[in-house]
């Protein structure tokens, strides 16, 4: 299969209102991440974090095609996946700040947010580490006889780890309902994928007989339409799929990576022209005649919600010392 952009037909029934909801979700992730960056630079956040800015169309486009009881596994760059699957802003920020009110009582932090109520099986600090977990969720779905689907998000850096290939092989052998979503943001940490991934990305999965395709990850309409087809297929027993979403990490590897000597400012400027939020705005304005003030109002509402969530998290308590050895064992 080629890696050229595939223009998917717009799904019938998806009107402007639907896309404005998706737009709001993307704005929410963008604003969350910008705020997380501010918390880091103002030394109010412990540790570091990895920003999803630039890749929002993938998480939202795919999670909007999932049900609440479907599963996702996420990555170190995972805030977008968690929010898109339905996580609440206040518990997210509280976790980033190491507070007891956070999703993981401050025990996980930015890289390990899990929320079983929204089907989020956890973000993972090992780049390919969740391939097995998502595949196991697929096995569980099959054995329990439900029609859920599991989506495994990972970056192109994870293409270097063998677990992914063991997992996809078994998913195809046993027709497990797992969608492997490779967010190809071009860089594994500081190394371009041209130096790390030989051959074809989609060929890695099609060799197993897994349905594989590459799409433009900046265009949420393409991502969503593709995701709906693949998720529906998996739900009906059609087996796993491998979806490469070509995208770009607008910020550095993490919030402290501000010089980015491994890539050019020109390359960044080229990708900035394909900002996923701007692309959707342009389409909604031109094709659906949405007025500019609608976007502004959404942005303002999201900003208000994010500010309230940050205030909640900043005011929240740190865990009591007695928490430290709780939850080692169930």
């Amino acid at each position: 299969m080629s890696e050229k952009k595939e223009n998917m037909p717009n799904e019938p029934g998806l009107d402007a209102e639907h896309w404005l909801q998706a737009y709001e979700q993307m704005v929410k992730i963008r604003t969350f991440e910008e705020t997380a960056n501010e918390l880091y630079t103002s030394a109010r956040m412990p540790g570091i974090t990895h920003l999803y800015i630039g890749e929002e169309a993938i998480a939202v486009g795919i999670c909007e095609a999932l049900r609440q009881d479907d599963y996702i596994t996420s990555t170190h760059r995972g805030h977008g996946h968690c929010l898109a699957k339905g996580a609440a802003l206040d518990k997210m920020f509280a976790e980033l700040l190491g507070k007891e009110a956070g999703y993981c009582r401050g025990k996980g932090g930015s890289m390990h947010i899990a929320d079983q109520e929204t089907g989020n099986l956890g973000a993972n600090g090992i780049v390919g580490g969740s391939a097995g977990i998502a595949t196991g969720a697929g096995m569980s779905i099959k054995l329990r006889g439900t029609d859920q689907v599991a989506v495994c998000f990972f970056g192109d850096g994870a293409l270097g780890q063998g677990l992914l290939y063991e997992s996809m092989n078994m998913a195809q052998l046993w027709k497990l309902p797992v969608i492997y979503v490779c967010e190809n943001n071009q860089y594994g940490e500081y190394t371009h994928n041209s130096k790390a991934a030989a051959g074809s990305m989609v060929g890695r999965a099609s060799g197993f007989g897994v349905h594989a395709q590459a799409i433009d990850g900046q265009d949420i309409r393409t991502v969503h339409a593709t995701a709906r087809l693949l998720i529906d297929r998996a739900r009906k027993g059609g087996g796993p799929a491998f979806l490469v979403c070509n995208t770009y990490r607008f910020h550095g590897h993490h919030v402290g990576d501000i010089d980015r000597p491994y890539r050019t400012r020109e390359e960044e400027a080229e990708w900035a022209k394909r900002d996923p939020l701007k692309l959707l705005e342009d389409w909604l304005a031109k094709s659906q005649h949405v007025e500019a003030d609608v976007f502004q109002r959404i942005q303002q509402d999201v900003k208000t919600a994010v500010d309230e969530a940050v205030d909640f998290a900043l005011d929240a308590s740190f865990p009591n010392e007695s928490e430290v050895d709780r939850h080692v064992y169930a």
Binding site: Y71, L121, G132, I133, T135, G136, A137, S140, L143
Partner: peptide, 28 residues
Amino acid sequence: PDRVIDSPISEAGIAGIGVGAAITGMRP
């Protein structure tokens, strides 16, 4: 064969399947 499963020679993969299945309600 649904409950007693011959796997490929993929130790990490089957351990991962165990973790994911366990998190989602099974006892592998």
